[in-house]
Each structure stands twice: as C-alpha cells, then as structure tokens.
Nucleic acid binder design. Structure first.
Length: 669
RNA sequence: GCGCCCGUAGCUCAGAUGGAUAGAGCGACAGGCUUCGAACCUGUAGGCCGGGGGUUCGAUCCCCUCCGGGCGCACCA
C-alpha cells in the first residue's frame, strides 16, 4: 500500500516549503505517479505552482526543495528533474518486505455509519440486466466503502404497494381469473418470476386494448393500500415469492443485503403521516388551491440557478404563470393518496434518523454467505433484532433518470433545515442499460419501427417484456465457462467444474458491469458479454490462478512455502529488484501497492471503472512478467526468491482488488 | 423550451484533483506452446481527443459557444 508514503512525502515537502519561503498557504498539490518508473516512483509538481508567487523558475525552486528534504524512511532519493518536477525514488527491497510482512498497517479512522440502498426492483417480475447494473454498482460501492473502514448497512427497498405489483394482481385475478388457491399453486410450482415476466407484458397489452380497464388497476391499487382483503393477501404472496426470487438471483452473483425495507410498513407504521406533519409544519409541502393541481399537496421545485426577476424582465410573456405552476410536484394527490415520492421522503428521513420513529424487524432468512437478512415489519417484530437506520450518510443507487426526484429529496431536507443531511445524501447516479439490436433480435423481439429503428439501442422494458433476464444470462455464461473449464481440466469432478464455471460467469458479468464509467450508457450485447478474453473478469482470475499455481508447485516440488520465502528475504541479495531503473519486477510490485490509492480515487469519484482498469492493468503487468521471468525454473536462488516474493504480493493485492468487485478466484479454471 | 449526461483509433471504451511521449480491449496483419497453464505473450498498422473561441508556463480535462446523440421535466414508480 502506498498512501502512507504519499502522505509522508507530501507533509515533508510542505514543511520544507514553509521553512524555505515562509509561505503560510502552501498551494494544494498531489503526490502523483509518473508515467514510467525511470522518472521515479512518485512525483510532485508543486514547483510549477510556486513559480509565479515566488517569481522564480520551477527548476530552481525544485532544486531548493530537493536540497532541503531530509532523509525519509522508505525513500531512497528525491531529485529535482531539469524541467521542475520533483521525482521520488523508493527503497525497493524494504518497500516489498514490509508490505509482505504487513508492517504497513494504516488502520482507517472509525467513521460514521453509512447506508447504501440499491437493487430496489419492483417485485412483480424477473430481474433483468438493467437491474444488474444497479446491484453490481451498489454492491461494489458497499465493498469499497467497507474496505475503507466505513460502517455500512445495505438496504434494499421493496415497493410492495406499487402499480407494478397491482398489475400482476390484475393479470392473475382479472385476466387469468385465478382464485387465491390457484395463485398460490402457480407461485409454488412454476418459475414464478418468469411467469410474471410474461404476464406483465400481457397486462400491458390488455390495458392498451381498452383504456377503461385502467380503472381496474386503480381499484386494485386502492385495495392494496387499504389492506385486510383478499387482494392485499394475494399481492403480499406475489411480492414475497418475487422478492425471494430476486434475492436468489443476486445471491448467485454474491450480492447480499442487511435489510429489506417494505413500503407497506412505511404506511402501516404511519411513517408517512408523521413525515407529512413535519413537511406541512415547515411549509415545504402546501395545499394548492387553484389551477390544475387544486386539491393536491405539492412541493415547490427550486430551479437550479434560477434568476426569477431578470428572466422575467428579459422574457415577458404570458406563459410565465403556466410555467411556474408546472414547477410543483404532487406529493399527495387530490384523492388523498400519497405518491411514492412522499413515501420515499419518509424513508429517507428515517434513514437519517430524522423521523423520530422506527420500524419493527423480523429475520427474513439466511443468505448465500450465511449472513442473516432482516426485513422491516409492522407486527411485533423480533426484540433481538439489531439496530437499523440512523445513518450519518446515505448513498442511493438509482439511475440518472431519477435525478430530478433525488434533487427533490435533498431540497426537502434543506427546507427542513437539515443542510448537512442533504449534503450527506448522495444520489449515486448512473446511465441506463439498453440492448443492442443484434441481441434484441436474437431474443426474438420484433424489429423496432419508426423512430425506434434509428436509435443506436433498444430500450429495456419490463412492461413490454423486453430485456435479458439475469438468470438466463448467468446460465448462458456458466454453460460456456463450464465447457471451457472441462476442456482444460479433464481430471476435475463435475462439482468442481461447476463451481469454477459459476465463479467465472460471475466474474465475467460483474466486470462487464463495472468497466464502463457510470455516465456511459451500456448497450448490452450478449456476444460481447460472453467474452472471456482480453479485458474481462476471467482474464483477471486467470492471472491470479497462475500466480497461485506457482506457489502450489513451489510447495509440491521444493517444499517451499510463501512464509519461508518471505522469511529468508532479509539475507538475500536484492539485485533482482534494485538493478536498473526500469526494473520489471519492481514495476509490478509498485503497481500492486497502489490499490489503496486507487480505492481512494474510486470513493472520491464514485467511479468503479477506475478500479476495474487498475486491476486489469495489474493483471496485464503480471502476465507479461510471468512470461519473461521464470520462478520454478530459475536457478539462481536470490532471483527466484525475490521474484516469488513479488508475485506473492501481487497475487494478494489482485485478490483484494477482485474481492472489491465481488469476483472470486477459482482454484482451477 | 429548460435541466443533466455523452462525443477520444474501424468498433467498444480508459485517460483522478489541469502536467512528462494520448492508452487498452476487440477487429486486422506478423510472430510465439517438449518450459511456472496459450482464457496467455511479443510486434505492426490505425488519432485535427466533435467544431470554434478563451483561461494558463502547460488543456482530452476548466470557461463560453455551436454541432451531433441520449435521458429527464406526470394527480406512474
């Protein structure tokens, strides 16, 4: 790990600048990584920044600073480059040895509790690739924050009273004319999330044939909210089965949660009623008495960077009034039914501990990893349930289409005088997933018509049943991985082969979801996602498997364990890693050490593509090293030991990096 | 119309707080398995970083403007 070294150098340079020039406000500068190791391991550009205020050449300033730096532990030398850079060269052998011995422990400061909410799929159909991006990002966010020592609680919001659930109830009760008993039987004997996937598309059709039928949906929705009737009982059954299907799908990907938050409980426990009082009292929400929203409780939407008066002065037009009326968002409809925004506001208030109320909790089940999963409840609840909510910081993983509503949440917090909480409510926004035309065709969907045909992608639509289901995709990937594993490892049992295939499939799909930056729309193409070569999850796994094999063989053939090698390094000549500025082994070790620096960048930018690219680059470096520098067959023992030590560190770091992305390393592949 | 996002090699994408020579994968072409596993490695070709202004010692990155594309702006969620 490298962050501690960077801080050490940074602080020393600040000290020297202060002493040398008497400046109190040293400009902010970073300790960065030069493009090649020949230019040093770390570099600082502060001399450029000081050139103007000091009225001196960068080169001269750099030389003065370099001369003023005292000896630093771990630093071999710090030199001023002719162009003004300050280049730092590290003490290579001690750098590697101390890391292998875990002497570089930088215990992260204890942090405030943080909630990550992700997945939140409508419980009315199977999960598709759009949901996959959300869950992969959310789960990785949780892993990365935990790596930084943050206390994390992962929540999955379940909209059990929404229109989408109502639609499935309508489909079963009204279109298919099923009795409650029959519905239970279907839920228990079919692949129910797939069944509902098809049914949902049928319901959409059914409405389109006769818009009058939408009144059936409204009545159903009303019955759901009312509760205590057959419709509500049926809906609860549907929701429970679909939620369990979603959890199973996510479990296959190594994605788990701490708490399921049910919207129904928000209503039953009067969370909304309570939040409504708070909102009314502060004036954040008020009753509109005129215009088309008369009778609705609305929230006024602040225009970002609005300049009301000047705008009106420049553009005096009769439409002004109509425009401003449109800038109001309905929170409670004129029929008295709260919108989902209202319920979500209550949920966010609760998460931040601002509601003054709490859910009851019940144990929902055990997850793949053995961890318990809890659920909110409005019943008595389990007295031994752990505490939930009351976080200092929350991340809501939701696609960019909901930006508008997320902005509304933080605006509500501000209006209520919770500026700090608003600041700590982060909308982790990302672009949607579309389907390539080729993949849509492959799935048997009719070719898009009109305007849609010219679009570069086909929009995923649960309503139309248009999308790639996660389980189908996983099955496809496992099938392919399985045949690849079997081809290379004839001696493996079916179980072992299946285990590896599943790990490979998960790696492929998770890496695929993380390698794009979140602002980029992913046009999902099956063929592309099935690739196990080049920049892919399996490539990364392959590198670690190879590294692991070296140690297996060292143990088998020479009874040499990693600990033996590390233990003997102190007395072993280190030329293998010190010779030559552009030493390949050192380049590998140094890059491996950068994981903590990379993770810091990731947290700052919330951009996992940085982590993905880093891990890939490290695997590439390792693979190149692997080809050029033998270990088992190296005759000189000093070389052999230093190479093995370097590989030991790289595999440990790469394994950590993969774990952050939810990727496991198979024993064979 | 307003707001947000995107535009970098043939295709798909990286280029953290402005820094040293703009990179990778795929595809194309040419090589490398009796060697620690070829899901790999080595090499070649391929770029007005959408256009134009500006800020600066320095701009793919920041500001303005234009062009092209996506997504939002419901008494749906």
């Amino acid at each position: 790990m490298i962050l501690a070294v960077q801080r050490l150098i940074h602080d020393e340079i600040v000290r020297v600048i202060t002493r040398l020039y008497g400046v109190t406000d040293v400009p902010v500068f970073a300790v960065e990584v030069p493009p090649t190791r020949a230019l040093g391991d770390l570099a600082v550009t502060v001399a450029f920044q000081l050139a103007r205020p000091l009225r001196n050449a960068p080169k001269a300033i750099a030389q003065e600073i370099a001369a003023g730096i005292g000896p630093l532990p771990g630093v071999a030398r710090l030199v001023a480059a002719p162009n003004g850079y300050l280049n730092v060269y590290l003490e290579r052998p001690t750098f590697l040895v101390s890391r292998l011995r875990h002497e570089i422990a930088a215990p992260p400061a204890p942090s405030d509790k943080t909630i990550v909410e992700h997945t939140a799929i409508n419980p009315n159909k199977a999960a598709h690739v759009g949901h996959l991006r959300n869950a992969a990002l959310g789960d990785t966010l949780a892993r990365v924050l935990r790596f930084c020592g943050v206390e994390i609680e992962v929540q999955n919001y379940i909209d059990d009273l929404g229109v989408q659930v109502a639609d499935i109830v309508v489909g079963l009760q009204e279109i298919e004319k099923r009795s409650p008993g029959q519905i239970r039987e279907i839920a228990d004997t079919t692949r129910f999330d797939y069944y509902c996937w098809d049914l949902y598309a049928k319901v959409t059709d059914w409405y389109e044939h006769d818009r009058e039928r939408l009144s059936v949906r409204a009545a159903t929705l009303h019955a759901l909210e009312e509760g205590g009737n057959d419709t509500a009982t049926t809906a609860a059954l549907i929701v429970d089965r679909i939620v369990r299907a979603h959890l199973k799908t996510m479990g296959r990907l190594g994605i788990g949660y701490d708490l399921l938050t049910y919207e129904g409980d928000i209503l039953r426990l009067q969370f909304w009623a309570h939040a409504f009082e708070i909102l009314k009292a502060s004036g954040a929400v008020f009753l509109q008495t005129e215009g088309r929203l008369a009778g609705c409780w609305v929230m006024r939407i602040d225009e970002p960077g609005a300049k009301e008066e000047s705008a009106e002065a420049e553009a005096p037009s009769g439409e002004g009034a109509g425009e401003s009326e449109a800038r109001e968002k309905v929170i409670v409809r004129s029929n008295g039914v709260v919108t989902y925004i209202g319920k979500d506001l209550a949920n966010q208030f609760w998460k931040l501990g601002l509601l003054g109320r709490d859910f009851k909790y019940r144990l929902f089940g055990r997850q793949e990893n053995g961890q318990p999963l809890w659920s909110t409840t409005s019943d008595a609840g389990d007295p031994d349930a752990p505490p939930f909510g009351h976080a200092k910081r929350i991340y809501n993983v939701i696609d960019s289409r909901q930006m508008y509503l997320q902005a509304l949440l933080s605006q509500a917090l501000r209006t209520l005088g919770h500026a700090e909480e608003a600041e700590n409510s982060v909308h982790f926004s990302y672009e949607m997933v579309g389907l390539s035309h080729a993949t849509a065709r492959e799935l048997g969907y009719p070719a898009p018509e009109g305007e849609d045909a010219t679009k570069p992608f086909v929009e995923v639509s649960g309503r139309k049943g248009l999308g790639v289901k996660i389980d189908d995709l996983l099955d496809l990937l496992i099938q392919k991985a399985s045949s690849e594993v079997a081809k290379r490892n004839a001696e493996l049992s079916a179980d072992e082969c299946g285990r590896a295939a599943s790990q490979i499939a998960v790696a492929a799909i998770r890496y695929f979801m993380l390698k794009y930056s979140r602002g980029k729309l992913i046009v999902f193409d099956i063929e592309e996602a099935l690739s196990f070569e080049g920049e892919s999850g399996p490539y990364l796994q392959y590198a670690v498997v190879r590294a692991n094999n070296i140690f297996h063989k060292l143990q088998e053939r020479e009874a040499l364990a990693e600990a033996d090698i590390i233990g003997a390094l102190a007395g072993t000549p280190a030329n293998e890693i010190t010779d030559d500025e552009e030493n390949v082994l050192w380049g590998l070790v140094f890059e491996a050490a950068r994981l903590d620096d990379i993770v810091e960048q990731v947290v700052r930018s919330l951009e996992f593509s940085v982590l993905a690219k880093y891990a890939f680059g490290l695997a590439q470096l390792f693979n190149a090293f692997y080809h050029r520098y033998p270990i088992l067959n190296e005759e000189r023992s000093d070389r052999k030991r230093w190479r093995a030590a370097g590989v030991a560190y790289v595999r440990a770091q790469l394994t950590r990096a993969l774990d952050l992305m939810g990727i496991e390393v198979p024993s064979r592949m």
